[in-house]
Design a protein around this nucleic acid. Structure first.
Length: 545
DNA sequence: GAGTTTGAAACT
DNA sequence: CAGTTTCAAACTC
């Protein structure tokens, strides 16, 4: 006990804000048994007093053996996990974008350009649509581009936006010296500078780069003008999952300051794109696709992110995919190659028979892939049926601009995984079978789900944090695993155990003191009240309720 | 492997 | 927008 008190005191002496809060008079009694460990990264409220505390007499409900067994883990503290703080989660600065971040008008302020081409005139002689003097966003007219963008982002469809695009292009044409925004070498680092062309939109835009030559799709949220993406090719001596990408500040005088910090990274394999017409122009009003310089081995595809944003459904993205042989960098070849390579390694084959793999029933299609090594019948989701495929894509986008949106959004506030963006509608599976998209994605159902009789809230690490066992409880159903809306999600199993430990300790104390049963019960209830008070206060503190 | 169940997508 | 149908995957036997 003295050791525990010392721990307690040490913890309290940390002097952190949280410690101060939890050591106030309101929690004095609880703190007798709680060791408040303050961690700089997350706050644990350990309760070492709970387990070793009970070295004395017997307590009802717990055999000595059982308690001894538990106490053998004398270093295992019960912990109160308070709800997430208001502080920013430790998420990368640029993480995988959710659909909302993908909207092209947001990314439009950034144009990707290739500075190296100005010095590689031989490349431009190969007949591609690349120009070192202009933005690389295809042959489309600005209005077409805008329409394409607007078609997947209805909210942006206004005259001002259209004019803004025209202005951007005009500006780009007038100031070619400012348009050297992509550089690459065959084996060296690939660098993308982000140039802000629409100052009205400010920061926090999104840029999506398909570095086909690297087999990586780079999505950067909340980009600021002047930021730079620096990529080392797979296999590069300095290349590693942690060091592929860096952002640096970018100064107008081209004096970049490198290594300002490791950037968050996100990359995904190039996915098949909608068909590209002759001269690499776009058939689709919804997609911006441009080829890289002929012979460069790279293409840069600007496309509605929703279409390829299903990437995260695949846990791993081999860096070696989608390499495009030098001299074969027409956009279509890039797309075909990237699609086939990607498919062959990672994609689950579909078995469609009636949809021609051109409806969202088909997982390949829904994931933005062409079918490859599938068992489908009458498949049109391939490069031999580009026009049909494009039409199908357009139909889907017309019907639902978010049709190709990732179903599973990114996690927030420390969630290991995200949640289903639409939520499931399961009725009979209890959300505990793979019929349930949430369960299949190994995430819990959330308040967005409309499921009936949901039981997808236990067994998984997340589920273990839940203490209720009543899946049909409406309150729970609406609050489950939604940390933004469900402060009770902080009541983890550890919190429950810690609380029980406190009660046990209190019972032991009562027993030691020789109190009557009723008095002991009263003490335990008071202790329980103190625990609940602390929990509730921590909830209020973290959620600003 | 055939048949059934399930829920998302598509359709009305 | 709600109800129904279609579809393909998941599941069961």
């Amino acid at each position: 006990m003295s050791c525990l008190k010392e721990q307690n005191q040490r913890s309290l002496d940390n002097g952190s804000e949280t410690s101060a809060v939890y050591s106030s008079e309101n929690y004095g009694r609880l703190l007798r048994t709680l060791d408040v460990n303050i961690d700089s990264d997350h706050t644990d409220f350990s309760v070492p007093g709970v387990m070793p505390h009970g070295s004395g007499g017997e307590l009802s409900g717990y055999s000595r053996e059982a308690r001894s067994s538990r106490m053998d883990h004398h270093c295992t503290n019960y912990r109160f996990y308070p709800p997430p703080r208001d502080a920013e989660p430790s998420l990368p600065q640029y993480q995988f974008a959710t659909h909302g971040d993908y909207v092209l008008p947001q990314s439009s302020p950034f144009h990707l350009m290739n500075p190296s081409l100005a010095n590689n005139s031989h490349l431009s002689s190969l007949g591609g649509q690349w120009s070192s003097e202009g933005p690389v966003h295809s042959n489309m007219l600005s209005g077409e581009i805008y329409d394409a963008v607007a078609s997947i982002c209805p909210d942006s469809k206004d005259d001002h936006g259209r004019e803004s695009y025209r202005e951007q292009e005009t500006m780009a044409e007038l100031m070619p010296q400012n348009q050297m925004d992509i550089s690459q070498s065959a084996n060296g680092p690939l660098t993308v500078y982000l140039q802000h062309l629409d100052h009205q939109l400010g920061e926090n835009a999104t840029v999506v780069c398909n570095m086909s030559g690297r087999g990586q799709m780079v999505v950067m949220n909340h980009c600021s003008p002047g930021q730079m993406l620096h990529s080392l090719p797979p296999g590069h001596p300095d290349s590693s999952p942690e060091t592929h990408y860096y952002t640096t500040s970018f100064k107008e005088n081209s004096e970049q300051s490198y290594s300002m910090g490791k950037a968050s990274q996100s990359y995904l394999p190039s996915m098949s794109l909608p068909p590209i017409g002759p001269n690499h122009s776009l058939l689709s009003p919804n997609h911006l696709v441009s080829s890289g310089p002929p012979g460069s081995g790279y293409s840069y595809n600007h496309m509605p992110a929703p279409y390829f944003s299903q990437y995260h459904q695949y846990p791993e993205y081999p860096d070696s995919l989608c390499l495009v042989p030098d001299g074969q960098s027409t956009a279509s070849s890039v797309l075909r190659l990237s699609g086939s390579l990607w498919d062959s390694k990672s994609k689950k084959p579909c078995n469609c028979t009636k949809s021609q793999c051109l409806k969202l029933y088909c997982d390949c299609f829904a994931n933005g892939d062409v079918c490859s090594n599938c068992n489908c019948i009458n498949c049109c989701n391939n490069n031999e049926h580009e026009s049909e495929r494009y039409k199908a894509i357009k139909i889907c986008l017309d019907r639902n601009p978010e049709a190709f949106r990732p179903k599973i959004g990114n996690g927030k506030l420390g969630e290991i995984k995200g949640r289903h963006n639409k939520g499931c509608n399961c009725k009979r599976s209890g959300c505990l079978k793979n019929y349930c998209e949430c369960y299949e994605a190994k995430i819990m159902c959330s308040s967005t789900c409309k499921c009936v009789g949901c039981r997808n809230y236990e067994d998984s690490p997340e589920r273990k944090t839940m203490v209720w066992d009543s899946p049909d409880t409406t309150f729970y159903k609406k609050a489950k695993c939604d940390k933004d809306k469900c402060p009770l999600s902080c009541i983890t199993l550890d919190v429950v155990e810690a609380t029980c430990g406190c009660l046990l300790a209190q019972a032991e104390e009562a027993e030691k003191e020789g109190y009557m049963l009723c008095q002991a019960e009263k003490m335990i209830l008071e202790e329980f009240g103190q625990c609940l008070t602390q929990i509730v206060r921590s909830i209020f503190k973290s959620t600003s309720l």
